[in-house]
């Protein structure tokens, strides 16, 4: 059977593979090569070794966007996950209207980043107007604006995953603990949290990688204003390519570094989930 199926390679695999090579494989390796080249237009690429990488590390915008992204990710991940977990606990108490609440909390997740950014941009600017300022005036506003926006978008998403995890906690375990005299807090810490650990790992990494790769919301909420202070990594890379007149090689080198960073996060996730699977 394997042999007959094997002959059907051109029908089963080739269409996907051609598209995959055009969209991903060729651009990926070409991109790695170009990160070692100096070029403004692609026809005049000149090999320069690690110069682009050195330039990227010396670039203030890049270093700032790196710092901004890391701090943003830490704060956002904590806020989002604590809120999502709390909501999930509240929604598994069998109160009336649970389904409707779940639907409402999840909804913002479906709205695209660009539209989301402009919705919040108009709200923040309407509030800040009474203090005669705008969100583009101070990096502090942009930072907390992005936190609020991302919380609004991701809390529902993470909540859904936590609910799925919480529903898998066997009720007899909790009842046994209750009979043994465990307080609510003890039950949460000693039973619920260890049992939903897989969901926690998934949510942590999903929110980390979502925050690190953020682009659309960043572009539409602040666009990096004031003075690129609120530009995150993805936006800074975009601006290096298409914004100013520097060598695009630096942009590509930044992109490779960005890829390595995101890759390390993903590998750590794999490591943690694998280890959890062994334990169970």
């Amino acid at each position: 059977m394997q042999k007959t199926t094997k002959k059907y390679f051109p029908i089963f695999v080739l269409p996907t593979l051609i598209a995959f090579f055009i969209a991903f494989v060729i651009p990926f390796f070409w991109g790695v090569y170009l990160s070692f080249c100096k070029f403004k237009t692609i026809k005049k690429a000149e090999f320069v070794g690690f110069d682009n990488y050195i330039a990227a590390f010396k670039n203030d915008n890049f270093v700032n966007s790196f710092k901004f992204t890391v701090i943003f990710a830490i704060v956002a991940v904590i806020v989002i996950n604590v809120a999502a977990f709390t909501l999930a606990v509240l929604l598994t108490q069998k109160v009336k209207g649970t389904n409707l609440f779940r639907t409402v909390f999840f909804m913002p997740n479906l709205i695209g980043g660009i539209v989301l950014g402009y919705i919040w941009n108009s709200i923040f600017n309407s509030i800040l107007k009474s203090y005669s300022t705008t969100i583009a005036n101070d990096a502090k506003y942009g930072f907390w604006g992005l936190i609020i926006l991302m919380s609004w978008q991701l809390i529902g998403y993470m909540m859904i995953i936590y609910i799925a995890g919480l529903q898998n906690v066997p009720t007899d375990l909790k009842e046994a603990a209750q009979i043994d005299g465990a307080s609510r807090w003890q039950q949460l810490r000693k039973i619920t949290i260890p049992m939903v650990m897989p969901s926690i790992t998934i949510c942590l990494f999903l929110s980390v990688s979502n925050c690190f790769k953020l682009f659309d919301q960043n572009l539409s909420l602040t666009g990096g204003a004031p003075q690129r202070k609120t530009a995150m990594l993805a936006l800074d890379i975009f601006d290096t390519f298409y914004g100013n007149n520097t060598s695009k090689g630096i942009g590509q080198a930044k992109a490779v570094l960005f890829f390595l960073l995101v890759g390390i996060i993903a590998l750590t996730q794999l490591f943690f989930t694998r280890r959890k699977e062994v334990e169970q």
């Binding site: 969209a23 390519f241 992109a255 890829f259 995101v262």
Partner: peptide, 18 residues
């Protein structure tokens, strides 16, 4: 592997190829 690569990594070369 392609799942973990951020779009910015291939965005410029992909546009050139297209």
């Amino acid at each position: 592997f392609s799942m973990i690569v951020p779009f910015q990594m291939v965005m410029y070369t992909m546009t050139q190829l297209a």
